[in-house]
Amino acid sequence: MDAAARDWFASRTWQSVEWTVADLVAAKGSRTVSVVLPALNEEATVGDVIASIRPLVGTLVDELVVIDSGSTDRTVEVALAAGARVVLRTDVLTELEPLPGKGEVLWRSLAATSGDLLAFVDSDLVDPDPAFVPTLLGPLLLQPEVQLVKGFYRRPLSTEDASVGSGGGRVTELMARPLLSALRPELSGIIQPLSGEYAGTRELLEAVPFASGYGVEIGLLLDAHRLVGLPGIAQVNLGVRRHRNQPLAALGLMARQILSTALGRCGLLPGDTPGELTQFVQVAGEWLPDTAGVHVTDRPPMRELLVR
């Protein structure tokens, strides 16, 4: 491991929680916390995720908001019944036509919330741990220099036949961490660079661009490293994370978006470069190309937009 990454890992990695919710409430002071759940057709899981966080509302958490990305199922109804505030992506920054992708709704969440600190939690989690949010917020509230906290965890892999204890996070293992090791070795100590569970200060999050698609997490990590350096980044152990695993073809498109964002942040690819990925499928015994466009558009730092 890179020497700087090794030193950072030793000082900014929490393998176990050293704080209680009461400790965090006391340290919070006048600061406010918003928890954001991005959602797209997650009616089966979003209610349980909200239920795992709801007991914190009014003490540690000031806002619990689901940002819906155009669901066609009952995600909105389930989220409202579970006690979250629901914001449609078309309800905020209405003058801007929504772009497709997870990063788009995370970016819009900055304009839909008011917390000094924001925690992002994916809404497709299965059996979500109520400790996720307090664990993520710990370094932000207790370590003044920290501005971004990434969660890490063991990821079981669910297949059609069985569920195994590890093997999830295939894009992380096969592409994201090898890429960071080559391009930004100081970040090689990040266990889950693509983690959907993370928290940051509004000051930082409004100062950086957001990739509109799946490149949002690696883009935020690289930009945070540029702005606040390794001392401003921390990581915490969230234990086990279970969610719906995607098929390999979908992961290929995800990896292509992440790769484009990372290369752009590292100055190796012009920003907003149109892209595509050709995969191959079998039809009647023949292998045929299947080409899909890849969205790599960045949204500007929210701070620039809000001061216009």
Rank of each mutant, 00 (worst) to 15 (best):
P300S: 07
G138A: 14
A255N: 07
E145Y: 12
T172H: 09
A112M: 05
D161Q: 14
E206Y: 02
P300Y: 04
L306E: 06
V25N: 06
L248S: 13
V49H: 02
A22V: 10
N245C: 13
L56S: 10
A284Y: 11
M254E: 08
A39D: 07
G83T: 05
N41L: 13
L148D: 02
S195D: 06
V164W: 11
G200V: 01
L180P: 00
R54M: 12
E43M: 14
E77L: 09
V61S: 04
V307H: 08
G264D: 13
G165M: 11
V228D: 09
F280Y: 15
E18D: 13
G103Q: 03
D7Y: 14
G219A: 11
L288A: 12
A262R: 01
L99D: 00
Q15G: 15
V126S: 06
L56M: 11
W287E: 13
P185S: 12
Q282I: 13
A176Q: 02
P128W: 01
A84F: 02
G267C: 09
A292Q: 08
Q147G: 10
S52E: 08
E104H: 06
L180C: 06
G239F: 15
F120W: 11
E18P: 03
W14A: 07
L251M: 15
A250E: 15
M175E: 05
D127Y: 09
T201Y: 00
D298S: 08
I258Q: 06
E42W: 15
L269S: 10
T32W: 01
V296K: 02
D122A: 05
W287Q: 09
T32L: 08
I191Y: 03
L180M: 08
D7G: 07
V86P: 00
D68M: 03
L37Y: 04
S109C: 05
A262I: 13
L227M: 14
R89F: 00
S260K: 09
L227G: 14
L259C: 09
R299N: 00
I258S: 05
R226W: 10
I190V: 11
R202F: 03
T45M: 10
W14F: 14
V92E: 00
A255C: 10
I50N: 02
G70L: 01
W287M: 14
A4T: 08
M254D: 05
V121Q: 03
F210L: 03
A111K: 00
I67D: 00
C266V: 14
L253P: 06
V21G: 02
L230Y: 08
S52H: 12
L96S: 05
G219M: 03
S16Y: 12
D2R: 08
V25R: 07
V121T: 03
L204R: 01
Q257F: 02
P55W: 12
G70K: 00
L157F: 13
I258F: 10
G115Y: 03
T90A: 01
D116N: 04
A81N: 10
D272V: 06
L179A: 12
E217Q: 08
I218H: 02
